[in-house]
Protein backbone atom coordinates (compact mmCIF):
# COMPACT_ATOMS: atom_id res chain seq x y z
CA UNK A 1 0.00 0.00 0.00
CA UNK A 2 1.46 3.33 -1.03
CA UNK A 3 1.39 6.59 0.84
CA UNK A 4 -1.70 8.74 0.23
CA UNK A 5 -2.25 12.41 0.88
CA UNK A 6 -5.38 14.42 1.05
CA UNK A 7 -4.25 17.98 1.64
CA UNK A 8 -6.70 20.56 2.93
CA UNK A 9 -5.59 23.43 0.80
CA UNK A 10 -3.43 24.24 -2.15
CA UNK A 11 -0.55 25.46 -0.08
CA UNK A 12 -0.38 22.20 1.80
CA UNK A 13 -0.68 20.28 -1.44
CA UNK A 14 2.23 22.13 -3.02
CA UNK A 15 4.39 21.68 0.04
CA UNK A 16 3.70 17.97 0.02
CA UNK A 17 4.52 17.86 -3.65
CA UNK A 18 7.81 19.61 -3.11
CA UNK A 19 9.12 16.69 -1.10
CA UNK A 20 7.18 13.77 -2.52
CA UNK A 21 7.03 12.45 -6.02
CA UNK A 22 3.30 11.82 -6.22
CA UNK A 23 0.71 10.57 -8.61
CA UNK A 24 -1.76 13.42 -8.65
CA UNK A 25 -5.29 12.13 -8.46
CA UNK A 26 -8.12 14.46 -9.46
CA UNK A 27 -11.28 12.70 -10.72
CA UNK A 28 -9.45 9.47 -11.26
CA UNK A 29 -11.69 8.24 -14.06
CA UNK A 30 -8.66 7.41 -16.19
CA UNK A 31 -6.26 6.49 -13.40
CA UNK A 32 -8.65 4.05 -11.76
CA UNK A 33 -9.13 2.24 -15.07
CA UNK A 34 -5.42 2.17 -15.89
CA UNK A 35 -4.53 0.92 -12.42
CA UNK A 36 -7.41 -1.49 -12.18
CA UNK A 37 -6.64 -5.05 -11.17
CA UNK A 38 -8.71 -8.08 -10.33
CA UNK A 39 -12.14 -7.18 -9.01
CA UNK A 40 -11.95 -6.70 -5.26
CA UNK A 41 -8.31 -5.68 -5.25
CA UNK A 42 -7.16 -2.16 -4.67
CA UNK A 43 -5.97 -0.48 -7.87
CA UNK A 44 -2.20 -0.40 -7.85
CA UNK A 45 -0.24 2.80 -7.59
CA UNK A 46 3.55 2.73 -7.39
CA UNK A 47 4.03 6.28 -6.26
CA UNK A 48 2.34 8.04 -3.37
CA UNK A 49 -1.07 9.32 -4.35
CA UNK A 50 -2.21 12.84 -3.72
CA UNK A 51 -5.92 13.54 -3.98
CA UNK A 52 -6.70 17.05 -5.12
CA UNK A 53 -10.35 17.17 -6.05
CA UNK A 54 -11.23 18.47 -2.58
CA UNK A 55 -9.05 21.54 -2.98
CA UNK A 56 -11.38 24.53 -3.08
CA UNK A 57 -8.78 26.66 -4.90
CA UNK A 58 -8.94 24.23 -7.80
CA UNK A 59 -12.69 24.21 -8.11
CA UNK A 60 -13.41 27.79 -9.01
CA UNK A 61 -14.32 29.41 -12.27
CA UNK A 62 -13.64 33.11 -12.54
CA UNK A 63 -13.63 35.73 -15.22
CA UNK A 64 -11.38 38.68 -15.10
CA UNK A 65 -10.46 41.15 -17.80
CA UNK A 66 -11.61 38.91 -20.58
CA UNK A 67 -9.72 35.96 -19.17
CA UNK A 68 -11.63 32.89 -18.06
CA UNK A 69 -9.86 30.90 -15.37
CA UNK A 70 -11.07 27.38 -14.79
CA UNK A 71 -9.92 25.47 -11.73
CA UNK A 72 -8.23 22.24 -12.74
CA UNK A 73 -10.38 20.09 -10.45
CA UNK A 74 -13.72 21.33 -11.76
CA UNK A 75 -15.71 18.37 -12.96
CA UNK A 76 -17.20 18.36 -16.41
CA UNK A 77 -20.68 18.47 -14.90
CA UNK A 78 -19.81 21.51 -12.82
CA UNK A 79 -18.55 23.26 -15.93
CA UNK A 80 -21.68 22.35 -17.86
CA UNK A 81 -23.73 23.92 -15.06
CA UNK A 82 -21.56 27.00 -14.65
CA UNK A 83 -22.90 30.27 -16.01
CA UNK A 84 -19.50 31.68 -16.83
CA UNK A 85 -18.66 28.83 -19.16
CA UNK A 86 -19.52 29.64 -22.78
CA UNK A 87 -21.96 27.46 -24.63
CA UNK A 88 -19.42 26.08 -27.10
CA UNK A 89 -17.36 24.70 -24.20
CA UNK A 90 -20.45 23.00 -22.90
CA UNK A 91 -21.17 21.46 -26.28
CA UNK A 92 -17.81 19.72 -26.04
CA UNK A 93 -18.17 18.67 -22.39
CA UNK A 94 -21.70 17.33 -22.83
CA UNK A 95 -20.47 14.85 -25.40
CA UNK A 96 -17.74 13.49 -23.16
CA UNK A 97 -18.21 10.09 -21.49
CA UNK A 98 -21.45 9.53 -19.58
CA UNK A 99 -23.40 11.45 -16.93
CA UNK A 100 -21.85 9.46 -14.06
CA UNK A 101 -18.32 10.00 -15.33
CA UNK A 102 -18.88 13.67 -16.06
CA UNK A 103 -19.75 14.01 -12.37
CA UNK A 104 -16.27 12.71 -11.46
CA UNK A 105 -13.89 13.56 -14.29
CA UNK A 106 -12.07 16.88 -14.19
CA UNK A 107 -10.85 19.17 -16.90
CA UNK A 108 -7.35 19.20 -15.40
CA UNK A 109 -7.29 15.45 -15.49
CA UNK A 110 -8.33 15.37 -19.11
CA UNK A 111 -5.46 17.70 -19.96
CA UNK A 112 -2.79 15.97 -17.89
CA UNK A 113 -3.82 12.58 -19.18
CA UNK A 114 -2.58 13.90 -22.53
CA UNK A 115 -4.43 11.28 -24.49
CA UNK A 116 -4.56 11.87 -28.23
CA UNK A 117 -8.30 11.32 -27.84
CA UNK A 118 -8.66 13.76 -24.91
CA UNK A 119 -11.84 15.49 -25.86
CA UNK A 120 -11.38 18.83 -24.14
CA UNK A 121 -8.08 19.34 -25.91
CA UNK A 122 -9.06 20.44 -29.44
CA UNK A 123 -11.27 23.14 -27.92
CA UNK A 124 -8.51 24.33 -25.61
CA UNK A 125 -5.93 24.30 -28.40
CA UNK A 126 -8.24 26.26 -30.66
CA UNK A 127 -8.79 28.86 -27.93
CA UNK A 128 -5.07 29.26 -27.17
CA UNK A 129 -5.64 28.12 -23.61
CA UNK A 130 -2.83 28.40 -21.10
CA UNK A 131 -2.16 25.80 -18.49
CA UNK A 132 -1.30 27.16 -15.06
CA UNK A 133 1.40 25.11 -13.35
CA UNK A 134 2.18 25.64 -9.72
CA UNK A 135 4.80 24.38 -7.38
CA UNK A 136 5.66 25.51 -3.89
CA UNK A 137 8.06 28.07 -5.29
CA UNK A 138 6.64 29.21 -8.60
CA UNK A 139 3.66 29.59 -10.81
CA UNK A 140 4.00 29.49 -14.57
CA UNK A 141 1.65 29.55 -17.47
CA UNK A 142 2.27 27.52 -20.58
CA UNK A 143 0.34 27.41 -23.82
CA UNK A 144 -1.49 24.11 -23.90
CA UNK A 145 0.16 23.11 -27.15
CA UNK A 146 3.51 23.43 -25.43
CA UNK A 147 2.39 21.74 -22.24
CA UNK A 148 1.20 18.61 -24.02
CA UNK A 149 4.22 16.93 -25.53
CA UNK A 150 3.00 13.63 -26.82
CA UNK A 151 0.93 10.60 -25.97
CA UNK A 152 0.64 10.73 -22.19
CA UNK A 153 3.53 13.19 -22.02
CA UNK A 154 3.42 16.70 -20.63
CA UNK A 155 5.87 19.27 -19.32
CA UNK A 156 4.57 18.75 -15.79
CA UNK A 157 7.59 18.45 -13.55
CA UNK A 158 8.01 16.77 -10.25
CA UNK A 159 6.75 19.11 -7.54
CA UNK A 160 4.28 20.79 -9.87
CA UNK A 161 0.64 20.46 -10.52
CA UNK A 162 -1.82 21.97 -12.92
CA UNK A 163 -4.04 24.27 -10.91
CA UNK A 164 -6.01 26.05 -13.57
CA UNK A 165 -6.63 26.59 -17.23
CA UNK A 166 -6.82 30.11 -18.54
CA UNK A 167 -8.75 30.80 -21.66
CA UNK A 168 -8.94 34.23 -23.27
CA UNK A 169 -12.57 35.01 -23.86
CA UNK A 170 -13.28 35.61 -27.47
CA UNK A 171 -16.42 35.59 -29.46
CA UNK A 172 -16.93 33.63 -32.62
CA UNK A 173 -19.51 34.00 -35.28
CA UNK A 174 -19.20 30.43 -36.50
CA UNK A 175 -18.69 27.46 -34.22
CA UNK A 176 -18.65 23.87 -35.35
CA UNK A 177 -17.77 20.95 -33.12
CA UNK A 178 -17.97 17.39 -34.25
CA UNK A 179 -17.08 14.38 -32.18
CA UNK A 180 -17.08 11.23 -34.25
CA UNK A 181 -17.40 8.54 -31.63
CA UNK A 182 -17.91 4.83 -31.55
CA UNK A 183 -21.52 5.37 -30.46
CA UNK A 184 -23.73 8.22 -29.34
CA UNK A 185 -22.89 8.18 -25.64
CA UNK A 186 -20.17 6.80 -23.39
CA UNK A 187 -17.91 6.73 -26.40
CA UNK A 188 -14.31 7.49 -27.02
CA UNK A 189 -13.69 9.56 -30.08
CA UNK A 190 -12.45 8.13 -33.32
CA UNK A 191 -11.71 11.72 -34.21
CA UNK A 192 -12.97 15.15 -33.36
CA UNK A 193 -12.96 18.51 -35.09
CA UNK A 194 -13.51 22.03 -33.94
CA UNK A 195 -13.78 24.95 -36.29
CA UNK A 196 -14.16 28.52 -35.07
CA UNK A 197 -14.44 31.69 -37.09
CA UNK A 198 -14.89 35.35 -36.21
CA UNK A 199 -15.92 38.07 -38.53
CA UNK A 200 -17.14 41.62 -38.30
CA UNK A 201 -18.44 44.26 -40.70
CA UNK A 202 -15.08 44.29 -42.39
CA UNK A 203 -15.18 40.61 -43.02
CA UNK A 204 -13.49 37.51 -41.70
CA UNK A 205 -11.07 38.24 -38.90
CA UNK A 206 -10.08 34.91 -37.46
CA UNK A 207 -10.16 31.18 -38.08
CA UNK A 208 -9.20 28.41 -35.63
CA UNK A 209 -9.16 24.77 -36.58
CA UNK A 210 -8.20 21.81 -34.42
CA UNK A 211 -8.42 18.05 -34.80
CA UNK A 212 -8.35 15.42 -32.07
CA UNK A 213 -7.37 11.73 -32.07
CA UNK A 214 -5.63 11.91 -35.43
CA UNK A 215 -2.04 12.47 -34.34
CA UNK A 216 -0.10 11.99 -31.08
CA UNK A 217 -1.29 15.43 -30.02
CA UNK A 218 -4.03 17.76 -31.20
CA UNK A 219 -3.48 19.01 -34.73
CA UNK A 220 -3.61 22.76 -35.04
CA UNK A 221 -1.57 25.03 -37.30
CA UNK A 222 -1.66 28.79 -36.98
CA UNK A 223 0.18 29.12 -40.29
CA UNK A 224 -2.39 27.10 -42.13
CA UNK A 225 -5.18 29.06 -40.46
CA UNK A 226 -3.61 32.35 -41.50
CA UNK A 227 -3.24 31.10 -45.04
CA UNK A 228 -6.95 30.34 -45.06
CA UNK A 229 -7.79 33.78 -43.70
CA UNK A 230 -5.62 35.39 -46.37
CA UNK A 231 -7.11 33.27 -49.12
CA UNK A 232 -10.60 34.21 -48.06
CA UNK A 233 -9.77 37.87 -47.71
CA UNK A 234 -8.28 37.89 -51.18
CA UNK A 235 -11.10 35.86 -52.59
CA UNK A 236 -8.68 33.20 -53.81
CA UNK A 237 -9.78 30.16 -51.90
CA UNK A 238 -7.69 27.15 -52.87
CA UNK A 239 -9.28 24.14 -51.22
CA UNK A 240 -6.78 21.67 -52.57
CA UNK A 241 -3.95 23.71 -51.11
CA UNK A 242 -5.63 23.69 -47.71
CA UNK A 243 -6.21 19.95 -47.97
CA UNK A 244 -2.56 19.43 -48.80
CA UNK A 245 -1.49 21.50 -45.83
CA UNK A 246 -3.64 19.60 -43.37
CA UNK A 247 -2.96 16.22 -44.94
CA UNK A 248 0.64 16.45 -43.86
CA UNK A 249 -0.38 17.36 -40.30
CA UNK A 250 -3.11 14.77 -39.82
CA UNK A 251 -1.36 11.45 -39.20
CA UNK A 252 -3.85 9.06 -37.70
CA UNK A 253 -3.30 5.41 -36.88
CA UNK A 254 -5.52 2.38 -37.26
CA UNK A 255 -6.57 0.88 -33.97
CA UNK A 256 -9.40 -0.96 -32.26
CA UNK A 257 -11.74 1.97 -32.77
CA UNK A 258 -11.23 3.07 -36.34
CA UNK A 259 -8.92 3.11 -39.33
CA UNK A 260 -6.28 5.62 -40.33
CA UNK A 261 -7.95 6.10 -43.69
CA UNK A 262 -11.33 6.84 -42.16
CA UNK A 263 -9.93 9.24 -39.63
CA UNK A 264 -8.02 11.14 -42.22
CA UNK A 265 -10.82 11.32 -44.76
CA UNK A 266 -13.40 12.28 -42.18
CA UNK A 267 -11.14 15.07 -40.89
CA UNK A 268 -10.51 16.47 -44.32
CA UNK A 269 -14.20 16.28 -45.20
CA UNK A 270 -15.16 18.06 -41.97
CA UNK A 271 -12.55 20.69 -42.71
CA UNK A 272 -13.76 21.23 -46.25
CA UNK A 273 -17.34 21.36 -45.12
CA UNK A 274 -16.46 23.97 -42.53
CA UNK A 275 -14.62 26.08 -45.06
CA UNK A 276 -17.35 25.87 -47.67
CA UNK A 277 -20.40 26.05 -45.47
CA UNK A 278 -19.22 28.21 -42.58
CA UNK A 279 -16.20 30.26 -43.61
CA UNK A 280 -17.42 31.13 -47.07
CA UNK A 281 -20.59 32.44 -45.45
CA UNK A 282 -18.60 34.48 -42.98
CA UNK A 283 -16.89 36.13 -45.88
CA UNK A 284 -20.11 37.20 -47.54
CA UNK A 285 -21.68 38.41 -44.32
Amino acid sequence: MVEAYKPNDLKEALELLAFNDCTIFAGGTDLMVKRKRWSGLVPSFEKPVMFISQLQELREVTEDNGMLTIGAACTLSELIDNELIPEHFKTVFRQMASPGIRNIATIGGNICNASPAGESLPLLYALDAEVVLQSSCRKVELPIAEFVQGVGKTLLKSGEMVTAIKVPKSSFTSITYRKVGTRKSTALSKLSFIGLAASDEEGLQDVRLAFGAVAPTVVRSRDAEEDIIDMLKLGSLDISQIIDDYSTLIKPISDQRSTALYRKKACIRLLVDFIINSLAREVVR
Partner: peptide, 18 residues
Protein backbone atom coordinates in the same frame (compact mmCIF):
# COMPACT_ATOMS: atom_id res chain seq x y z
CA UNK B 1 -24.00 3.46 -10.10
CA UNK B 2 -24.60 5.10 -6.74
CA UNK B 3 -25.22 8.66 -5.65
CA UNK B 4 -22.47 10.53 -3.82
CA UNK B 5 -23.81 13.71 -2.28
CA UNK B 6 -26.72 13.38 -4.66
CA UNK B 7 -24.61 13.01 -7.80
CA UNK B 8 -24.57 9.89 -9.89
CA UNK B 9 -21.14 8.23 -9.98
CA UNK B 10 -19.67 4.94 -11.15
CA UNK B 11 -18.50 3.40 -7.88
CA UNK B 12 -16.07 1.07 -9.66
CA UNK B 13 -13.76 3.95 -10.53
CA UNK B 14 -14.37 6.00 -7.39
CA UNK B 15 -11.76 5.65 -4.65
CA UNK B 16 -12.95 5.63 -1.07
CA UNK B 17 -10.64 8.53 -0.24
CA UNK B 18 -13.05 10.72 -2.15
Amino acid sequence: SVLVDGKLVNSCIYPIAK
